[in-house]
Amino acid sequence: MTSMSDLKTPHPPNWCPGCGNISIWGAFKQAAVNQGWDNTNTALVAGIGCHGHMLNFVKITSLEGLHGRPLPVATGIKLANQKLNVFVFTGDGDCFGEGGNHFIHTCRRNHDLTVIIHDNSLYALTTGQTSPRTPQGLTTKSTPQGNPDEPINPLSLAIISGATFVARAYAGDMEELTDLITKANEHKGLSIIDVLQPCISFNKSLTHDFYRERIYYLGSDYDPTDKDEALARSRELESDRIPLGIFYNSDAVEKGKEPQKALIENEAADRDLDKLFRKYI
């Protein structure tokens, strides 16, 4: 059993009032309470950016790593102890800029991790430069003439790279996000949740109003096991309609990718070294 007060730390959130991170934080904690995630069964990893501060506000053991590198850290944790629920919090700059290479390969490896992307479509902690998710043409501090480049489509990239649970959420809908985080953790493979999260301080374009006008949920008649359809629907991001929900959810996860026993339990005393050494005679 986990209660809200178990998750409380001495540090209240220091995000801007109204920041989308606050509802992602709330949704994660609610899911943790619902599911009983605590210090006996869960580990968190974050990169660097506004999202990374979150680890100070959730009392579950975590590693705050380097900018762009939370995915390989989380992979190491999962390989070392598959019993842990492993959550990664990462930003769009963290995940697709500095860490883009890791994202592709983490999808390929498809380990049982849940990756929550705090996607505010720009660099916020460094006060508003363009990110790999910034729409083309948008002016930011680093692109005063307008962003010349196409943004990355996180869901399409995840699906073609091999992730088996791919979803999009909107930070303004905490209830739905709580449910998605729970389902993502239940999925036995890599789960990607791209959370559209307005940055109220630096992104005057992708605001709550902007999203509210465009978002809609993939209906109950949508079949998330159809990979081609998932890929097609993921591309709707490039239009004026933004679907939310689980785009792709496949149980075609290769078994046995992580050792069944925590590595720490593999004692060297059981190793027949003499046999190994004699190979070199």
Binding site: L63, G76, I77
Partner: peptide, 10 residues
């Protein structure tokens, strides 16, 4: 980073 993650987990 993977080695650090695994080491963090023991």
């Amino acid at each position: 980073n993977m080695a650090i993650g695994a080491s963090f987990a023991g």
